[in-house]
Design a protein around this nucleic acid. Sequence first.
DNA 1: CGTCGCATTGATATCGCTCAAATCCGGTGG
DNA 2: CCACCGGATTTGAGCGATATCAATGCGACG
Lengths: 177, 177
Amino acid sequence: MFRQGDAARAVFNVLDGEVRLARFGEHGEELVLQRARPGDFFAEASLDSGRYHCNAIASEEATLLEIPAAALRELLDTDARFARQWVALLARQLRNARARLERLSLGGAAQRVRHYLVTEGRGPEFEVALTGSLKDLAKELGLAHETLYRTLARMKESGELERKGAALKLKTRRQRV
Amino acid sequence: MFRQGDAARAVFNVLDGEVRLARFGEHGEELVLQRARPGDFFAEASLDSGRYHCNAIASEEATLLEIPAAALRELLDTDARFARQWVALLARQLRNARARLERLSLGGAAQRVRHYLVTEGRGPEFEVALTGSLKDLAKELGLAHETLYRTLARMKESGELERKGAALKLKTRRQRV
DNA sequence: CGTCGCATTGATATCGCTCAAATCCGGTGG
DNA sequence: CCACCGGATTTGAGCGATATCAATGCGACG
């Protein structure tokens, strides 16, 4: 859709499909900043800065709603209800980014997995339905995929984790150490 | 000022001093999410969610402006200019959080230091004036402080980095590998 | 002068990354 | 229906970077 450094012309809303927001390291490795799924906005943070700060990649066929920057500014200025929702949206994304920040600062693969389940999971057992592959999850957690496989296997063996197809559950409460 | 889990009553603005926004791990280690300095707002993201998501700690004497949640909502609804600035503030913080996210996802201490200098530094040599101690910087970079010392020493020895008191500069351009 | 915290350096252990190989699985084409 | 292919998954082995533990110097501050 656009590349890092382009002038920010518009904000987008995903109607259908999925778009990855990513940056690329020196060696071509991809860092996913955000995965925008139907209903999500993206490039919201670039609006005020004039340039896009990452690359938008449609991994599959996707339908997008493109909102020109000028139109958005107009909306923000005139529609108070919209402005309030926009603020709520930014705040939500900010909290999400900070949760990931906290996760990445954890030492130890198992801790990251636990943190992921506790923050993203639902219900008393912190159940998470995997959307993509485990390799994708490994990227999200900042781990090599082999490490994630091994960590999941070890946690499953110790009874701390349960896997049913694409669902992950935390079985035991986090222990006092 | 407040603790994680408290009901979010207000947003704050630092007039003087410094406030750390942090969470604590199981073993008491501190994770700094944000350092609010004079002019900065904090707890902006908690407003919509009802509860604070981290602890606010005044590391030194600080003067704060407390803005009750109701007042802020009122402002957002009535003052379009304020709402626009508030959106810009959130967007800035979001970009900042994502930059840190990108940094933490880098492997290798030297890469993180470079990323820090390139994103936070000013001018052609990416000069950064250290505000706190190197231990604080180490936390920000997600490194043990010993590792940061060693990394800085190695980079200085190789001529890539220069240190003058509290200022850090990148001397050579990042090389193609 | 004693203490405290930061800065620095050394030694060691550990954990996760890298390289490698085997298996599985879904899809594709014959 | 079967052979084949690519990507994900899984397991193994070894290495290297970082965390951890430890000791010392140094400056500020009481």
